[in-house]
Design a protein around this nucleic acid. Structure first.
Lengths: 207, 207
DNA sequence: GTGCAAAATTGCAACGAGTGAAACACTTCA
DNA sequence: TGAAGTGTTTCACTCGTTGCAATTTTGCAC
């Protein structure tokens, strides 16, 4: 009785619409006024709900910006959790990086329209940067667990964590350094791929 | 006249004492009551200053916990910024990891007494975890810059960033995974060294 | 020491994020 | 139609954080 699966009722669809309204309203305001200058009261008013209701949709102001991070994480984890037969650890990880860099362009017009703004916010607003790093950190722990499960004979938990940490850490810093150097998004993606390759080959190849 | 260098005056030493008092008071309360349950008003009262004065010593409640992170970062950056003649990039980075893991035990009785509590706080309090990740991220950007300057012929900014990100990312996640698996601090340090070695050798050695 | 300027401390008011609880409104389904 | 949920609103409150003006403390010249 309680466990209706689709739950296509009025209730559920209304909740989805309110959620979208909050996201759209917030990002619109962030773009115009800036993140820190926009108050929750303003966001709620713009989405026609009370301030209190905001918190039944998002646990915090920061989390609204990362509204799709959970879905992304699940997709990525599914990727490394099911290695192709005979696939090496390195190949799975490279496949993961390739897929992630690809997704940026395939996320649908909806999310895509938000991405430039979100990238800008994350790079300039300290609290969003911190939250982004935390979410990335959590996703790495999940990836490490999935990878360890995918290669139970070759990897233990700690080794899988080291591998994921190395690959994600390298691409993360390479992308940020590239962007900070004034690079374009294309150059940043190229930097990510090269960083991944370097990590697979080993830092000793730098000498 | 204004630019006295040592500034061993009453003013300066009193400020140092107040700073220490705030740190001691806060950590004492955090240990007893927990971080989130301790208010700034309580910390300030315990250190005999006003709440307002707290903020002329630390920019936020979180930053008090990381009172020595700036000094650590400077030490580490000095390390990679001055490679020994003929030293390889990999060797410098390994030296960095070795020194960092060593310092944990050499930080003097003062900081050492706080470290177990701080580690516990960082791993359990979300806002502290986020701040720790952010500080680590910033330090990596600094390290990458220093490394690039140390090897201007072999590394550009992005490549240096990738190298630092890989190494720090690998050790960070390996340490956390090891601790999360119930490992001791010694095991975590061992995991860090192995993760560093793996990153130098390359992830392809996993297969 | 006296007095003056700089610097540090304090108190106060205010703002915004976030939370708990009670009243209220709207769906759902029998 | 009516009972039972479920979501929303309102209200009051806590806490971190900031700006400002008043006040105290310190450094230093005389």
């Amino acid at each position: 009785m309680q466990y209706s699966f689709a739950m296509a009722g009025l209730r559920e669809s209304k909740k989805q619409r309110t959620r979208q309204a909050l996201i759209e309203a917030a990002l619109r305001l962030f773009e115009v006024k800036g993140y820190e200058e926009t108050t929750l009261a303003e966001i709620a008013a713009e989405a026609d709900v009370s301030t209190r209701t905001f918190f039944s949709y998002f646990p915090s102001k920061e989390d609204l910006v990362f509204y799709d991070s959970a879905a992304r994480m699940e997709r990525t984890i599914a990727l490394v959790g099911e290695p192709l037969p005979g696939e090496t650890v390195g190949a799975v990880l490279l496949r993961m990086v390739a897929a992630s860099t690809q997704w940026a362009a395939e996320d649908g017009a909806y999310a895509m329209a938000h991405n430039p703004l979100r990238l800008h916010l994350i790079m300039t607003v300290p609290s969003l940067q911190a939250r982004a790093l935390q979410l990335l950190f959590d996703s790495q722990l999940g990836l490490a667990r999935a990878l360890a499960d995918g290669f139970p004979d070759r990897l233990n938990r700690t080794r899988a964590a080291a591998a994921v940490g190395a690959l994600v850490g390298a691409t993360k810093l390479a992308v940020v350094a590239s962007l900070a150097d004034g690079g374009s998004l294309e150059e940043a993606i190229k930097a990510a791929r090269e960083a991944a390759a370097l990590t697979i080959d080993g830092l000793h190849t730098l000498d």
